[in-house]
Design a protein around this nucleic acid. Structure first.
Length: 545
RNA sequence: GGCGGCGUAGCUCAGUGGUAGAGCAGGGGAAUCAUAAUCCCUUGGUCGGGGGUUCAAAUCCCUCCGCCGCUACCA
């Protein structure tokens, strides 16, 4: 392994049975922000996303659409690539499980497992519900009206027995527990880690890893009747992308094991139990960390297709703007928790934190420089304690962010940044350059320089979250493209006298369109208690997303 | 049922033994450079209930109530 700083981060590969929704956008966004942060911090980054294209559901969906599975997946997979472009994700690769490189890798890991005696041929039997295409445990079944057994979904079940290959998962419990214990924060958040540990401690059964009931998948080497279990196939994508089975390749040696598999909480087990077991059994290193994030609700309601309240990330971006959406998703909720998307919360964050706090800070500073400091980076005089304190706060932010980003605490990182934003607004009011303009122009310039430097720090540090907007901010500060990495935060200070372009707003306020203006209120603002103006019902957008 | 987590200001949350915190929302004031944005001050909580340990508990222990997650092979 080279001494170069490197970082490998992955999203799950998304199942093409579904069109992209906010959950997909969220997972990949979190990875994108991590990837951008690490790149700016000098790491060589590999950021992988892609699509999972095998399995019975895809086979059936394609049949229903009257086309070949591959043609079907070509089409649906493109939706995810389109989302990635629209969301400005910086993924370095986009993998599809139908690619030749992946089929080769999947068969290779199978053979590695088989040759090490980790896979054996047996029979899978259990209660199967044809309607649900799923097996159920005895304990899950419910009694039907006539005493027959039913799936928890109410579907009839039958006892089915089929030939299947098994992975000796039962042998890996102790080694998995040791793996979880080997480093702190192996599985985050902590509460998810507890669940995984408890699951493993309760005892593991061997895992059926092949199917004969359908054909759309990777063929089991030497057993063409069998198709590899979709999860074994899918998880393998993470090593396919770094060149497996060529474990001697530079890519593999550089990037494996992955630093972080980002997943939704629903697929944690596959990533934190099966996958490390598969890897260790195949003689490969397991991932360094798995992070399971939460789900979004919509206006307080659980999101479901049947409720029709699925949130389309593209529509969100169309309405509020890309960077505002990126910001909101990582700012609003402690990362790892479930969160609620609401129109009111979205607009509040945009207007209060982006437009008022940060956008206005930049605008008032830059336009003041344009009007009163000749439109160039102001001259720097001797620093007062207040100046030095603000600059020190800005200078110390990177270390704080590194620690927070290192735990994927995006919400904490943004809060840390906003502490500086608020401090800068307080500073400008205390120093009042508009007053200094008449009394002490030299001092005024120093104050403006301190503010511009603070903005430079903010712009550079917020690039991972809002790349476009911060690019604009840095343009307005005339920070060269080559001076926007974290390495030049401390030493790349603005050079007094450098010409600055004309400032323009970065984050416009979002003004609600439509209703909201129905009830005319008396000039005095109408907030007096006691009397309710006629017709003062709350207008509220009932339609989600 | 078993295991685990949570319940702190109107809202979202931080705070794991030593005089209750932040942001937003609410109230008052200042300023006028700026996207009418900003800044300062301020109202507000018997930290879910009860019991216990301790000089001292939101923080440790017990118990009760409420909510949530996990408890395997659709992905």
């Amino acid at each position: 392994m080279s001494t170069e700083k490197r970082y490998y981060i992955t999203t799950p590969i998304y199942y093409v049975n579904d069109s992209p929704h906010i959950g997909h956008a969220y997972t990949t966004l979190a990875c994108d922000v991590m990837a951008r942060f690490m790149r700016l911090d000098g790491y060589r980054v590999l950021f992988l996303t892609g699509t999972d294209e095998h399995g019975q559901k895809v086979e059936k969906a394609a049949a229903a659409a009257g086309i070949e599975p591959k043609a079907f997946t070509d089409k649906v997979s493109e939706n995810f690539r389109a989302l990635a472009r629209r969301m400005n994700y910086s993924n370095d690769d986009f993998i599809r499980t139908t690619e030749e490189r992946h089929i080769r890798a999947s068969q290779a890991i199978w053979q590695a497992l088989e040759s090490r005696g980790e896979i054996y041929l047996g029979h899978y039997e259990g209660w199967y519900a044809v309607r649900d295409e799923a097996f159920y445990a005895e304990s899950e079944l419910i009694a039907g009206p006539d005493g027959t057994r039913l799936a928890p979904t109410g579907a009839p079940v039958e006892w089915v027995k089929e030939e299947s290959y098994f992975f000796r998962l039962s042998a890996w419990g102790e080694r998995l527990l040791a793996y979880y214990d080997a480093v702190p924060d192996r599985i985050l958040p902590e509460t998810r880690r507890n669940e995984v540990v408890s699951f493993v401690k309760s005892g593991l059964q061997d895992l059926s890893v092949s199917r004969t009931s359908f054909g759309w998948g990777v063929k089991v080497p030497g057993a063409p009747k069998h198709v590899m279990y979709v999860w074994l196939d899918a998880l393998t994508n993470y090593i396919t992308a770094v060149g497996y089975p060529d474990t001697g390749s530079a890519e593999f040696k550089t990037f494996w094991p992955a630093d972080l598999h980002m997943v939704g909480k629903d697929i944690l087990r596959f990533h934190a139990v099966y996958w490390p077991a598969f890897l260790m059994a195949a003689g490969l290193a397991p991932p360094r960390r798995v992070f399971a994030h939460g789900w979004w609700t919509n206006e307080g309601q659980k999101i479901s297709k049947s409720l029709g309240n699925v949130i389309d990330p593209i529509a969100l971006v169309d309405t509020y703007g890309l960077d505002a959406v990126r910001f909101f998703l990582l700012r609003e909720v402690p990362f790892g928790n479930d969160g609620d998307f609401s129109r009111a919360a979205m607009v509040r964050r945009m207007n209060v934190e982006l437009a008022n706090d940060l956008g206005n800070l930049a605008q008032r500073t830059l336009s003041f420089i344009a009007k009163n400091a000749g439109g160039v980076v102001p001259a720097k005089g001797s620093l007062s304690e207040d100046d030095a304190a603000l600059l020190a706060q800005a200078g110390g932010l990177l270390d704080t962010l590194r620690a927070q980003m290192g735990r994927q605490a995006f919400h904490e990182a943004l809060e840390s940044v906003w502490v500086l934003v608020r401090a800068a607004n307080a500073y400008i009011d205390r120093q009042a350059p508009w007053a200094l303009r008449k009394t002490d122009p030299a001092r005024m310039e120093t104050v403006l320089l301190v503010l511009a430097e603070t903005l430079r720090h903010l712009g550079i540090l917020l690039q991972p979250f809002m790349p476009d907007s911060m690019g604009k901010l840095l343009d307005q500060l005339a920070v060269p493209a080559a001076a926007r990495g974290f390495d030049l935060l401390a030493t790349g200070a603005l050079v007094p006298g450098t010409a600055l372009p004309a400032p323009s707003g970065i984050f416009p306020r979002y003004v609600e369109t439509g209703a909201a203006e129905a009830a005319p209120v008396a000039p005095g603002k109408g907030t007096k208690p006691g009397k309710t103006p006629p017709g003062a019902s709350k207008p509220d957008a009932g339609q989600g997303g």
